Computed example of a mutant assay.
Amino acid sequence: MAELRVPPGRAGRLKLRRGLEVARRGADLLDRKLRVLHTRHEELLRAEHVARNTWHTRLAEAESWQRRGLLLTGEESLGTTAPRSPAELEVTWTSTMGVRHPRTASCAVPEPDPDEPAPANTALFHAEGAYASAVRAAAECAAAGAAARAVGDELLSTRRRVRALRRHWIPRLETALARVEAGLEQNEHEDAVRRKWVADFSARDS
């Protein structure tokens, strides 16, 4: 926490009042940001959960078809197809309260070459399509997870900043302001007493 430097007298009171106003306004703005981030984070967590379940389902389907195909023709049937080009991933981005994160991810899986041999059996043909679907689902899951993490990190950071303002900085300013105002009030009271004493003394001499 930064050292609190306060000028003496009324200048210090003015500085503290302004600082306290800024701190309270900042805390209010961060509270609003926190509510928006919390709502968005919950939405992204739900989207990630759905995307992960979809990915796991697609992968399980692909593995099931592959097992059936291998039972029919053996593992040597996996070597009948030539390697393909890598899948291409495209991510679109958006932002929530200044936090940049993925919005969607699409994955283009290369189509089979017409000249390459067909899968050895129908089960492996279905496995091929199911694995392509699983790859696309994995990309969507990764994007959803990255979005949830980015917004979640900002949520935690904002929560820490609000806590620092509400629990530490604002109370320090309030305490310092109360101390300065008490000192000023004491000085004004002493000045009033001195003025009254001078006035009474002058009246007795006249």
Rank of each mutant, 00 (worst) to 15 (best):
D113M: 08
F201T: 10
R67D: 03
I170T: 06
R17S: 07
T175V: 08
N53Q: 11
R32L: 09
E154Y: 01
G12C: 06
N121D: 11
R35T: 13
A120I: 03
P86G: 01
H101L: 08
E116R: 00
R52E: 09
H41D: 02
R100H: 11
T94I: 00
R35C: 08
K15H: 11
A62V: 02
A142W: 13
A148D: 04
L59C: 00
T39Y: 15
V50A: 12
E190A: 06
L165G: 06
T39R: 15
A203F: 13
P117S: 03
A182N: 11
V180L: 10
R100G: 02
R204W: 14
S64M: 10
E61T: 09
E43C: 14
W93E: 02
R24P: 04
L4S: 08
S85D: 13
L37G: 00
A139R: 07
W169D: 06
R52F: 05
P110M: 05
V151R: 00
S85G: 08
E88G: 04
E116C: 04
R166Y: 13
D191R: 14
R195C: 05
E154L: 01
L16D: 01
R166L: 11
T158C: 10
A143D: 03
D200Y: 10
E42K: 15
A192E: 14
A82R: 13
H38A: 13
